[in-house]
Amino acid sequence: MPELGHEDLCVLFHAGELPPDEAAAFEKHLPSCPACREALEALRGASQAAAMVLPEPPKGLGALAAAAVLLQDRPRSLRPLGFALAFAALALALYVASPKREEHSLKWTNGIESDLARVETDLGRLSQEIALGADPAELDEDLDGLEESARSLKRQLSRS
């Protein structure tokens, strides 16, 4: 490690990135150094602050975005579907983040969530089939199912 000042070591100490012997030496240094005590306290506060405002992803963002990537990387005929799904994912994300969401009934919310679950399941099956080089006729059938689920999801979303 290059030469580091005690205040730099303080940052590494807080992050748990000092080797044990250096961490022990730093702990001995701490009581006699107001600058490091102040920095350590500020670092702890910063970690707490960051944790308190941690932004949460909208439900389903990862699964839908991953599926869209996998589908988009497939043969040409499937690409428009990838875009449609990315769009559906975005619409869904906007719905989840929408403050108006609270105003909707529980029944409506449950409807959306079960539609989303169906789309995710369909997507999972499809991407597996594509990866395994499934028969195009079989894929078509499953695509129809997925499209129906996606349409239902979109209908629900457009009512929001």
Binding site: D8, A39, L43
Partner: peptide, 16 residues
């Protein structure tokens, strides 16, 4: 490395 460390320390002090 020392630059990354001091940026972190300044960020924490400034936040406080």
């Amino acid at each position: 490395l020392s630059t990354a460390l001091s940026r972190m320390r300044y960020a924490a002090l400034k936040l406080r």
